[in-house]
Computed example of a mutant assay.
Amino acid sequence: MSCSENTNAPAGDPLDAIDDAVAAAAFRRLVRHLRHRHDAQNIDLMGLAGFCRNCLADWIVDAGAPLDKAQAREAIHGLPAAQWKARYQTEATPEQLARMAESLKRNGGTH
């Protein structure tokens, strides 16, 4: 699963007017929500929305967080990614993989 920054934000996007502290608080709430909802598998998030926890980790690094990939994933998952994967991740089904591939096409090459 590959994640890159979506740079297709429209000019004058009202999201850009939200105070950074407010946006950061909302982001932290989203991450903590995902930490709580282990039943929401990354493959299902990718299939439905075209992004997952690993994407969020990539995005914080892309935004300038002084973390390597492993550290960023640990920050998002709440524990080392390998440990999270062993504890919570299930084997992807062919149907999940197909939904993810279709969903990624809708991202227009970026997400």
Results as ranks from 00 to 15, higher is better:
R32V: 10
R32I: 06
H33V: 06
L34W: 12
R35Y: 09
R35E: 08
R35W: 04
H36W: 04
R37T: 12
H38K: 09
H38L: 02
D39F: 03
D39S: 12
D39N: 13
D39W: 13
A40C: 01
A40S: 02
A40K: 02
A40N: 04
A40G: 00
Q41K: 07
Q41D: 14
Q41C: 05
N42V: 06
N42E: 05
N42F: 03
N42W: 08
I43N: 02
I43M: 10
D44R: 15
D44Q: 10
D44H: 14
L45F: 07
L45Q: 11
L45M: 13
M46Q: 07
M46H: 01
M46A: 06
G47A: 00
G47M: 03
G47E: 02
G47P: 05
L48R: 12
L48A: 06
L48D: 14
L48E: 11
A49T: 03
A49V: 15
A49E: 02
A49Y: 11
A49R: 01
A49Q: 03
G50E: 05
G50P: 05
G50L: 00
G50S: 05
G50K: 00
R53V: 12
R53E: 10
R53M: 09
N54M: 06
N54R: 14
N54T: 15
C55N: 03
L56M: 04
L56T: 03
A57M: 05
A57R: 03
D58P: 04
D58I: 05
W59R: 15
W59A: 15
W59C: 13
I60F: 09
V61Y: 07
V61A: 10
V61I: 15
D62I: 14
A63M: 11
A63C: 12
A63R: 13
A63F: 13
G64A: 08
G64Q: 07
A65W: 11
A65H: 11
A65T: 09
A65E: 11
P66N: 13
P66Q: 08
P66D: 14
P66G: 06
P66V: 02
L67S: 06
L67H: 11
D68S: 05
D68T: 11
D68W: 04
D68K: 04
K69G: 00
A70K: 01
Q71G: 14
Q71V: 07
Q71K: 14
Q71D: 13
A72E: 05
R73D: 12
R73S: 06
E74S: 08
E74P: 08
E74W: 03
A75L: 11
A75S: 10
A75H: 10
I76T: 09
I76M: 03
I76P: 10
H77D: 14
H77Y: 13
H77Q: 12
G78H: 13
L79F: 07
P80Y: 10
A81W: 14
A82W: 01
A82T: 02
A82S: 01
A82L: 00
A82N: 04
A82P: 00
W84P: 08
W84F: 15
W84L: 06
K85C: 01
K85Y: 00
K85W: 01
K85R: 07
K85S: 11
R87D: 14
R87W: 10
R87I: 03
R87S: 04
R87L: 09
Y88G: 00
Q89E: 13
Q89W: 00
Q89M: 02
T90M: 01
T90S: 04
T90H: 10
T90N: 03
T90E: 01
E91F: 06
E91K: 09
T93D: 12
